[in-house]
Nucleic acid binder design. Structure first.
Lengths: 357, 357
DNA sequence: TTGTATGCGTTATCAT
DNA sequence: ATGATAACGCATACAA
């Protein structure tokens, strides 16, 4: 057995990292000046600024986040809190948040919360005193979690929450309506909807958009072809099966997220229904998954990455109010999974219309 | 304008959180004893332990991670370092790491690194002094990153790295060979491979497994049907197009990850080639994507979640050496995207075999 | 504009 | 087994 290499794999002790004191000594000033420099205080002369900068560069000084956090009583962590659903949305938000934190001292920590979870959240806030918290849907709709943040004095952004800081919901409804209207304008009349969880306000908005479109074409009185899922692939597949067993069968299915739409594609394939030949399918959120299915999924693009980006900017204090240009614009993205209603389907419809019911 | 609500949305000042001093006063002991209790020191009598426990519960005391980190010179963060490729693998590792950190004071931070990135990593380590770092493939193969960690005195686990702490590679090669052998045993003779990035050792191992299987059936001298991608869906699609334009066309394609395999499915669909009727397709890693394609993708399951879990356990010091039971076992998972070679393909092969070349 | 003393909440060193 | 005191590295009064 090798005698030495056991303990943590380190043999030479680390060179102690330079501190503000070292920088101050080199620069010939006091600690406080260094502190001011680090915190971008306006009360630092240009000459002094240059001297400090040089000293910092010379020593390779990096401020210690732990010490800063202890003094400031706030760490440099931003927590992304989610419940494990909606992988695609989470990834997009992550990306945007990380883009906003690039080069800053902020770090992104992931906090998954199972049902309940207020205790876990409180413990996390108490322990780590994060600079801010971003609540992902559907967690963003839970007032108790927001209350926990407030009680801990932690700023909290509820993504995709109407009453909160995000403007996503309103445009989501509109965009969904636009998508469904496109289908209507292209000959579809029986359009199924795979809804999200019952208690999800975001899903409700999307369903409302669907109904808006039908209503705007005078179709709101017809039987609504709605089945609900839990945003998972499997639930989307099951819901689609229900819808596709109806008679007359829908010629289009719109799902409240991409994963369920992918499930609908699988269901259609399993039943030998061609997409988009005999059935158009569309998802929502425009996650990476939408471009990896066969055929690629039409969807509604929601700028989750920008929402994540802006959330961090707001938490960092760069923008306290959501600037107008920041308002999220959701918009339909047409892909090969949707098409004008085909001749076959048209004939099918006509035949079924002839059947008295 | 409302006069009061402006400042951070908080009106009542926070109740100052209890500290060790408070606990010590309540329990009638010194700070140090509280500290010992928190750190599970053996030098605490049972009676004292109970008293401290009661005081902590009474006050709802939660240790301040920043202060602890400052004193210990190490934060409670574990960084997951990745390069943005291989979403599925990252998510699985994340899941496992989070499971291992559940209930602990550890937190998972995400650190994306673009090409190069040694400076970013160094800055992160200097700033946040994480308890440990987990390098995801293909970053885990970069010695320079590991060197940066070592220089900073930060423990680092290189996931899926042969020379490192993971035993995944060896079994990956074997599992790939098993998968390809299954195809061979089911009549396939022309089996294409979509390889990973040239410089990826993990991809190389998988390719070797592919070659092992061919060799074990005496087919190693035949023309290898190998195209390479960069682990992305698009690259998989392009590589598959190349392979499927060959004549005679392969009856099976194995990709070095699921995303490229999904790309192969798309390519096949685009060329009107039925899967699995005329072409079998398999992926690698068994990510969630594998169950969301049509048809679902056969793949090689790699226990990335467990690898992530074990990585955290080792970083936390719970297990210094990889215990035998921890050795990752990769194994093929057959799904509907693979099938014994069909009659049509068999006939096709025979016809092509008759063509002199 | 710059410097001094003190506090942030915990751990480590030494003593008892 | 337990306690007093000095770090840990930085920020915030407040003074100069």
């Amino acid at each position: 057995m090798a005698p030495d290499h056991r303990h943590h794999g380190r043999m030479t002790p680390l060179t102690p990292r330079p501190t503000m004191d070292d920088v101050a000594r080199i620069a010939g000033v006091s600690k406080k000046t260094i502190s001011r420099f680090i915190n971008n205080s306006p009360d630092v002369s240009a000459a002094m600024r240059a001297r400090v900068e040089a000293a910092i560069a010379q020593l390779g000084f990096v401020p210690n986040a732990q010490a800063r956090a202890l003094a400031l009583r706030r760490s440099f962590l931003v927590a992304l809190v989610h419940d494990g659903s909606d992988r695609g949305v989470r990834e997009a938000v992550e990306t945007g948040m990380l883009r906003a934190m690039e080069g800053s001292e902020l770090a992104l920590v992931l906090l998954p919360l199972r049902r309940g979870g207020t205790a876990e959240l409180r413990a996390f806030l108490d322990r780590h005193a994060p600079a801010g918290v971003v609540l992902l849907p559907p967690l963003s709709e839970r007032g108790d979690l927001a209350a926990v943040c407030d009680a801990a004095g932690t700023r909290c952004i509820r993504l995709g929450h109407d009453g909160g800081d995000s403007a996503a919901d309103g445009t989501a409804r509109t965009a969904m309506a636009d998508l469904v209207r496109w289908l209507l304008d292209n000959g579809h009349r029986r359009i199924g909807l795979i809804g999200g969880p019952e208690d999800s306000r975001a899903a409700r908005q999307r369903e409302l958009g669907y109904q808006d479109a039908l209503a705007s074409r005078g179709l709101n009185r017809g039987p609504w072809l709605v089945a609900s899922g839990d945003n998972s692939f499997t639930s989307g597949m099951e819901a689609a099966c229900l819808l596709l067993e109806l008679s007359p069968r829908p010629t289009a299915i719109v799902a409240c997220n991409d994963e369920m739409a992918a499930g609908a594609l699988a269901a259609a394939a399993g039943m030998g229904i061609a997409v988009p030949g005999a059935l158009s399918v569309a998802g929502f959120d425009d996650t990476p998954l939408a471009t990896m299915t066969v055929p690629p999924l039409a969807s509604v693009h929601v700028p989750w990455d920008r929402l994540g980006h802006d959330a961090v900017m707001r938490l960092a204090g760069a923008a306290s109010a959501p600037s107008p240009e920041t308002v999220a614009q959701a918009r339909p993205v047409l892909r090969a999974s949707v098409a004008p209603i085909g001749e076959a389907a048209r004939a099918d419809l006509a035949a079924q219309a002839a059947i008295p019911r």
